[in-house]
Each structure stands twice: as structure tokens, then as C-alpha cells.
Design a binder for these strands. Sequence first.
DNA 1: CTGTATCCGTAGGGATACTG
DNA 2: CAGTATCCCTACGGATACAG
Lengths: 119, 119
Amino acid sequence: MSQESVPFDVFTAMCPSREVLEHVTSRWGVLTLAALSSEPARFGELRRRVDGISEKMLSQTLKALEGDGLVDRRVHSTLPPHVEYVLTPAGQQVAEAVQALIVSLYGVMPDVMRVRDGV
Amino acid sequence: MSQESVPFDVFTAMCPSREVLEHVTSRWGVLTLAALSSEPARFGELRRRVDGISEKMLSQTLKALEGDGLVDRRVHSTLPPHVEYVLTPAGQQVAEAVQALIVSLYGVMPDVMRVRDGV
DNA sequence: CTGTATCCGTAGGGATACTG
DNA sequence: CAGTATCCCTACGGATACAG
């Protein structure tokens, strides 16, 4: 698990990793990845897990993550259609990091609120 | 390091942790936090580290992170003015998680590019 | 159920000029 | 050096209606 040098640098504007970073850290990307890390889910279930997301944005977010190879879309052509979204192995790696980030925020929330309230 | 239950839930639209999450995962928030995690920096130095950021957005991002208690702004009232931005202990926790997220993306980039290119 | 299509407002963000 | 102030634009994202 050494931190070897990689041919990518997110600090450089033109690096392709920037685009993936923006998908992952987009408003709904973070929450969608985290919502999928517990277990796969269908469209409707995801909408319920990620409170406040619209159909449009969920659809758009899933497409972006799928295009990044982080999410797998599994279609069962039945009637009514049954579609399930699953994290790819790559997606699981990223989702775990996202989860850790969220947890780190929780740990910090009390401080945040103290600062906000000037206590 | 147990994952105990906390009174925050980022999946709920009204949870105050959402706002902090959005600051941290904003387009420039991620990069600014990561840029500060190596070592404190001044305004101009940050601009150089985070390739592509505008003065306006750097200023705005730093203010948000400062308001969240993640960044400390240290002013030395000299001429010319000398201002240094430092991560708070809380900010270091979050910045580490952000760093880990970025590294996880690097590990995934080859897959991403394979998917994109359809190889 | 699982989405797409359309309309539309807002605010995120870039460029530039200016100040202490 | 370290920002603020403006102008301005577009693209993110919400609401609604419709489709397979």
C-alpha cells in the first residue's frame, strides 16, 4: 500500500483524473456512491436513499459514474423492467474512500457548529 | 475507531452535515484542502498549487472552509501583508480523507480509461 | 417501474479591473 | 501581496409531463 508515483495529477487542470474527480465529488455523485456501497439498489430505491435527488439528476449521475467504470447497470428485461445498480470493484474502492470522508465529516460536525455559533 | 452512530445523516436533505459536505466536495474545495494538507500556504502559493482556480473562487472557497472550521487564516499585519492558510486539526482529518479519495481515484484511472476507450 | 424530454430559474464560476 | 467588486454567461439542477 505504498504511495508510489502515478502518471496522474489532479492538481493539473488538464489531467483526465480531474473529470472523474468532479463526477465523484459532484453534489449527487458522493451520495449516490455512498448509497450504493451498502448494497446494490434499483432506481426507485436509490431515490429514496438519497433524500432530495430528482429523477433527472439521479439518472444523469448514474450515467456519469457508469461511464467512469464505477457503477455497473444490470438490466433484467422483464415487465415491468427491473434494473439494478451495482458498484464495480473500482467503484467499491472509491466508495469506501467516500464513506471514510463522510465519517470524517461527522467527527468534525460538533467543531463546525461551535465555530458557526461562536461558542 | 469504531463506527458508532452519530446524530448526523448526510443522506437526509435537512441535515447540517450536507452543507459542509458540499463545501468540502465542491469543485475547488477538494483541491484546496488537498493542497493545504502537504503544508500551509499563502494565497499566491495556493493559486499556483491548484491549477486553474481563479482568485475569486480561491477566496470564496477559503472563506467557506474557514467558516466550517477546517481552515485557519493567519494574518501577519506587515507591509506587504502576509497571510497564511493552515488546516485546523479538524481540517487535517478531513483533508486526509480527501487525499485518500484522490489516491483511490488514481488507482482506478486505468480502468476508467479502458472503459472510456472500450478496450 | 424506469426512465426521457422540455422548460426554465438560479447560482456557480470566469474575466477583468481596482483597492489597501 | 492579498484580495474585493463587477459584469456576465452557461450549465447545473428542479419541476413537470410524457414514454416504453
